[in-house]
């Protein structure tokens, strides 16, 4: 709580000085920051790189996000740096509070912490200008620092790497004259609940390809309304794992701030059903 407040305060203090330099990509093309730190939406990354640096510039973003569902809440904060719209390095620190699960298991630990380090490379294309989508490839190294509960649930390891390919395109005027965003991701992963419940399990201990999709419509250049879908593996006999969904509104008042609010539906999470609630994210771009 205090840490993310400090991050936010630092961001806001740093913005005026960083804002002096040119960042030339068009507003909203830096995306928001996902809970895993990579540029994208809330739970699904995109092919875009954070910040607004064009191919002669650099840029980046810092963010704080919070997910609140009946029996869990997740706080994630982090940042990213992008070089020449080619390479994005990102970092996220996630804290999951799980009081209901702790009570049910009779354990005193109430928090699982995970860090995610991401690398994304734009392979080809431009989300706005090329007739084909922007295509990027990425890696996310995830390290779960509180492996006691994940191990008890049957997870095989406390750190792992996800690999993904993302294709994103904004079709200008593509939806009754409004700009429409389509994004598809293929992720090669064996993470349980994105790694918060460890990696691999008794049912399956191999990486699998999983599909992630997001789509949205720009009401104008400042407002994007859309939805996301993220398929998850089902590696543990301890509990079924559902796919995740969000419906979001994103606001880009200028090229330095983005706010995202969403309804999230995580389904059953570690034996606790009906985990739907809200998501809020603040991002500062520099």
């Amino acid at each position: 709580m205090k840490l993310w407040a400090a991050t936010l305060a630092l961001t806001l203090m740093a913005l005026p000085s960083l804002a002096e330099e040119n960042r030339s990509r068009i507003i909203a093309t830096g995306g928001a920051s996902t809970v895993e730190g990579s540029a994208g939406g809330g739970i699904v990354p995109m092919a875009v790189l954070s910040g607004y640096g064009a191919r002669e510039e650099q840029g980046g973003a810092v963010f704080v996000s919070r997910v609140r569902v009946p029996d869990y809440d997740l706080t994630s904060f982090g940042g990213s740096w992008s070089w020449r719209n080619r390479v994005e390095l990102s970092f996220a620190d996630q804290r999951l509070n799980h009081p209901t699960l702790s009570a049910a298991l009779g354990v005193s630990d109430q928090t699982i912490r995970q860090s995610v380090v991401g690398l994304k490379v734009r392979v080809l294309g431009d989300i706005l200008y090329t007739p084909y989508p922007q295509l990027s490839a990425g890696l996310q190294y995830k390290d779960n620092h509180d492996f006691f509960i994940p191990a008890a649930a049957g997870a095989k390891r406390d750190s792992d790497v996800d690999a993904y390919l993302a294709a994103s395109k904004v079709y200008l005027g593509g939806f009754f004259g409004y700009n429409v965003l389509l994004n598809g991701v293929a992720r090669y992963t064996r993470a349980n609940q994105t790694g918060l419940v460890g990696f691999g399990g008794d049912l399956n201990d191999d990486h699998q390809w999983q599909a992630e999709l997001s789509a949205g419509v720009f009401y104008n250049k400042h407002w994007l309304v859309g939805a996301e879908y993220r398929e998850n593996p089902d590696n543990l006999s301890f509990a079924g794992e559902d796919d995740w969904q969000t419906a979001f509104v994103a606001w880009f008042p200028n090229k330095h701030i983005a706010l995202v609010a969403a309804y999230v539906d995580l389904g059953e999470v570690a034996t606790l059903p009906d985990q739907d609630g809200w998501y809020l994210s603040v991002q500062g771009s520099f």
Binding site: L128, Y129, L172
Partner: peptide, 14 residues
């Protein structure tokens, strides 16, 4: 209007 802007930009983006 936004939609008219979008239409011109979609042509020029090519």
């Amino acid at each position: 209007p936004t939609r008219v802007q979008n239409e011109l930009l979609s042509i020029l983006a090519k």
